[in-house]
Design a protein around this nucleic acid. Structure first.
Length: 565
RNA sequence: UGGGAUGUAGUGUAAUGGUAACACUGCAGAUUCUGGUUCUGCCUUUGGGGGUUCGAAUCCCUCCAUCCCAGCCA
């Protein structure tokens, strides 16, 4: 029953509300119903993961259910491609909405009838004010608004005009249906909010059936009510809309009354979390698409090799509260590394090859060594790796004149070639420009397997690849898309902080043959280089492409930086 | 200068009247066939001021700071 022991995590404020509601019989059928309601106008990003985990997580925890509802009330911006990607991304995270898949557009007929009812009750009216005029009549943050001259039209006229709007008899922008609330309200959302606007756009699901579309403040609360949502959880910027939400759910005839609660959206340093800006990056080719591994979209991080488990862990560590803050990117990387460390298959890949020749090793001889697939998990087994006289090591792993603290290969120094032998550098070959083209060394046959009978230690262990047993593949070294913690903070333009080195392509890296078995979705670690995955779009069996998921922690790099190297 | 919210180590989140804590980051060290992992230790915290109380991060007053709102977007 060990796995039944609940982690003693304190309740967040939403859980407290829910437990209180449950305890006091305020929840119909004692069944918590939440919903995740994205607008299909772009791809889901890391910020949405928080919302998804909260809504689906709460439903799971309290044995209720979570609806997926696509908030498709603005056909001008929405697309089927987005709907499909959203569903895909939620599934990837491991959540299942079962049969509870809804669309705001499912409720267009009901919404229309409610609007008619409001008109009949004198609670809504058709306004002829233009957008500019309406803005003027609305007043400002500090000044109350004025009533529209059309506010007191007769019910009959309103009914007729709204019908005409629906029939397409009026051009876009010429008329709106507005709620009659209070133009002097200190809350601008209550100054006769628009309920319907005219839009001659083809809707991804309803096609050309409608040319009037309901607004968020009208649609969302009523959709919640129709679906029996008990806790309607959204982000902080909707706090001001809660009175509008409550207005809509208290319209006569609406029986179920959900409540809205707001939490702080997720902000992460170095990342942009705005669909508008992400769309700009896509449209202007700063990235290759919504699923570019540098994008903070779910499809992007997935293609980059992040695991859903690590992301769920990340948002759970971030917690849920009402404080608008900025989470460190390093926490996210920590979560990715912690998860991948436990499950990534280890491989040796030489990204920047330097030839190493073992002068005293027999030419033509091949030995096979056992390489562990994962030192963190003995069950993961081993694979074999070929060893020959000529190898490649990382150029970084040799220095002709070592700096202080360097304990890799340099003339006279002995290191271990992982799993294989101890080698000592003897001399270097250079080209006419003085560049090192090969390093010669000798090996100690006694050190076979990586230890010696005399038990002597070496400070360095390098990974390597046999020159004759090598998979040549493209490796894409991804880094952060932006180099500033808050892109645009300095100049006001986030494009100024684009990281020019966010992608460095290595056209031909040398990887041990075992890598050829890797498939899309596998988690890999190229020892001492980082975590990698097979690119889901561009990799082919005969021309593999690997993406860097994230680097390993690198204390040597840190130390070098400190020494000013 | 209207309304709505929020202030706890560098960051995020706990503690709801009774010893301010956990994680990440950073720093130092140990271990290590990955300069990874693991382990140990260290650093730094209740926005300011007043009040109530034996006792305040918590209750009250006040000031300050930050965020959101003037779409026929969501």
């Amino acid at each position: 029953m060990e796995n039944e022991i609940q982690e003693a995590r304190p309740l967040n404020f939403l859980e407290k509300i829910i437990e209180d509601d449950l305890a006091n019989g305020r929840v119909p059928n004692n069944t918590i119903v939440t919903r995740f309601p994205p607008e299909p106008n772009g791809y889901l990003h890391i910020g949405h993961i928080k919302s998804i985990c909260i809504n689906f997580g709460l439903a799971e925890k309290y044995h209720g259910r979570c609806h997926l509802r696509l908030d498709d009330t603005n056909p001008a911006k929405e697309d089927m491609e987005y709907i499909n990607s959203i569903k895909d991304d939620i599934r990837w995270l491991g959540f299942d909405w079962g049969k509870y898949e809804f669309y705001a557009s499912d409720y267009y007929d009901q919404l229309y009838e409610i609007a008619i009812r409001l008109i009949k009750e004198g609670k809504a009216y058709v306004d002829d004010l233009s957008a500019e005029e309406m803005k003027e009549y609305r007043g400002t943050l500090t000044q109350p608004g004025r009533n529209s001259p059309y506010r007191d039209r007769s019910i009959e006229e309103n009914l007729r005009l709204f019908e005409e709007m629906k029939e397409g008899m009026h051009p876009e922008g010429s008329k709106t249906l507005r709620a009659k609330i209070d133009m002097a309200s200190p809350n601008i959302n209550l100054r006769d909010p628009a309920l319907y606007r005219i839009k001659f756009a083809t809707h991804p699901r309803t096609g050309d059936k409608w040319c009037i579309y309901p607004m968020y403040d009208f649609t969302h609360p009523i959709s919640d009510a129709i679906e029996g949502i008990t806790h309607s959880i959204c982000t902080l910027e909707f706090e001001d809309h809660r009175p509008a939400y409550d207005w809509a759910t208290s319209i006569d005839g609406i029986e179920h009354t959900p409540h809205q609660y707001e939490f702080a959206r997720l902000n992460v340093t170095y990342l942009l979390m705005s669909k508008r800006r992400l769309l700009y990056l896509v449209n202007n080719k700063f990235v290759t698409g919504w699923d570019d591994p540098r994008m903070p979209t779910i499809s992007g991080i997935r293609r980059k090799g992040y695991s859903p488990e690590s992301m769920k862990d990340f948002v759970s560590r971030v917690g849920v509260a009402k404080v608008e803050g900025m989470v460190d990117y390093s926490l996210m990387e920590f979560c990715v590394r912690e998860d991948l460390n436990k499950r990534a298959k280890r491989l040796m890949a030489v990204l920047d090859p330097l030839k190493l020749v073992i002068d005293n090793y027999p030419e033509g001889q091949v030995e096979y060594f056992e390489a562990e697939n994962n030192p963190e998990d003995p069950e993961a087994g081993t694979h074999s790796v070929a060893f020959t006289r000529e190898l490649y090591i990382e150029r970084e792993d040799f220095m002709e004149t070592p700096v202080k603290g360097y304990h890799r290969l340099y003339p006279g120094n002995e290191i271990r070639l992982k799993y294989a032998y101890y080698v000592t550098a003897v001399k270097v070959d250079k080209d006419e420009d003085g560049n090192i083209v090969a390093v010669h060394c000798t090996y100690d046959p006694e050190s076979k397997g990586g230890t010696t009978p005399d038990g002597r230690k070496v400070k360095g262990t390098s990974h390597w690849v046999s020159a004759d047993h090598v998979l040549k593949a493209e490796v894409r070294q991804y880094d952060k898309l932006f180099k500033a913690e808050v892109p645009g903070a300095a100049t006001g333009n986030y494009l100024d902080d684009i990281n020019p080195d966010s992608l460095v392509v290595i056209p031909e890296a040398y990887i041990e043959l075992e890598a050829a078995k890797a498939k899309v979705g596998d988690y890999l670690q190229f020892i001492r280089n980082g975590y990698y995955c097979v690119d889901s779009k561009d990799s082919r069996p005969e021309a593999m492409v690997f993406n860097r998921t994230c680097t390993l922690k690198d204390s040597w790099a840190k130390q070098k930086k400190k020494m000013g190297l």
